[in-house]
Design a protein around this nucleic acid. Structure first.
Lengths: 221, 221
DNA sequence: AGAATTAAGGTACTTAGTACCACGACCGGA
DNA sequence: TCCGGTCGTGGTACTAAGTACCTTAATTCT
């Protein structure tokens, strides 16, 4: 179990050096030297120099996939919210480490790109499950993609606000943002296929139109 | 203007070799050898080995930015649609080249990642302009992000369908997809701020509720 | 024609990442 | 206790992308 120690030492050495000399100004040899391990060990522990910044990305992605895989069409909305929440909570849990990563990804284009592809992997997972839940047909492909994009975007938005210190209640904000966005793309009622989704704007107040709407829709008991 | 020739020769040699031996199995030296130019010229013409696959990404991004910059809040929806359409048309115009790129990006993870970060750059541009048009406040940041994500997602969806040979009318599909998505995120009517956006589902037919809706909303002349 | 600027090639170097081998610790079995 | 295997680790050597710098040919301006 010296693996654990080596991994930790490498990660700490890397973050420290990246802050001191910058990411590009630090070589892998510098990191291994400070960590007191061999160069080979670095590339055995992390696939690449960038990977040391995103050490548990794969695990987190797998967790999201597992959370979604354990769900069905009926529980899809809550599964999606909770899977995304899983990611948020992971970052919140990291604390300072997440902040250090944020500083790096903001200042180093290569790392920002790397992080972007990471979030797109989440998006892809959400899309695949959402599309499967929608039946997998070509007609629902776009909606699944839009849903996945919206989920990831909303998550990243809240996460970024927290990383910038703009909120102290990230979970609450996340719930609010997620509820608003997922609702837009959720599935129409299954069945006869004659239903409609209506989106409209009005200059009137919501309370003014609500009673009439209820009447219009029949408001079944 | 021998620049043009060298650039063209490099691009053709690169695509040919990538198809023959695969992307990873081809070195930059291989490409320059077939193109009959020096190695230095390659890296002067393209910033990296990956760049040869996406030669005019920067120019296209600038075109999008220019199209958006020449617009105002009032014309925002059409500007966004046309800016995105600009990108689509560029790819349609490329024809076989776009198809070759698609084959490569599908099979080589590094290239897929690279393309992803490219699309995210578009998304970023859309977001910035959309957010500015919404006033730039924190309260509209999420909506701007969602809008940008939706625009890029819809564009990519249609583009991919065309690349896969699933449609012969990409422009028409694009217009349809774009109209549906942009409408969801467009700005509420400016003014007193008392208006509402209503989204609801009904099992009834659209025609059945439409007359009542018109009456409800006052249908001003 | 001669000088100056520009485009291209060549050489040498740095660094990420890979392949392969060697050494030592630990561990089960004879 | 010794022996043989495996595993974690380090070392060496290599490939290939990307950079820095210098040189040379072509073109243009005076």
């Amino acid at each position: 179990m010296a693996e654990h120690t080596a991994r930790e030492r490498l990660r700490e050495a890397a973050f420290a050096l990246f802050e001191e000399r910058g990411y590009e100004g630090t070589t892998v040899d510098d990191v291994t030297e400070r960590a007191g391990v061999g160069r080979t060990t670095f590339f055995r522990t992390f696939r690449s120099k960038e990977d040391v910044i995103f050490p548990d990305h794969e695990a987190l992605l797998a967790a999201v996939r597992a959370r979604l895989a354990g769900s069905t069409r009926e529980t899809a909305p809550v599964a999606i919210r909770e899977a995304a929440r899983l990611v948020l909570l992971h970052y919140l849990d990291e604390g300072d480490l997440a902040l250090a990563r944020y500083r790096l990804t903001r200042s180093v284009p290569a790392l920002r790109d790397r992080e972007s592809t990471g979030t797109l992997q989440y998006q892809r997972v959400f899309r695949e499950f959402a599309h499967a839940w929608m039946g997998g047909g070509e007609d629902t492909a776009l909606r699944a993609e839009l849903l996945a994009a919206a989920v990831v975007t909303a998550h990243n938005h809240v996460l970024r606000r927290w990383l910038r210190g703009l909120t102290r209640r990230p979970e609450a904000e996340f719930d609010a943002a997620m509820a608003g966005t997922v609702a837009l793309f959720s599935e129409p009622p299954a069945g006869d296929g004659t239903g409609s989704i209506v989106v409209f704007r009005t200059a009137k107040d919501l309370d003014a139109v609500l009673p009439a709407l209820r009447g219009l829709l029949g408001e079944p008991g």
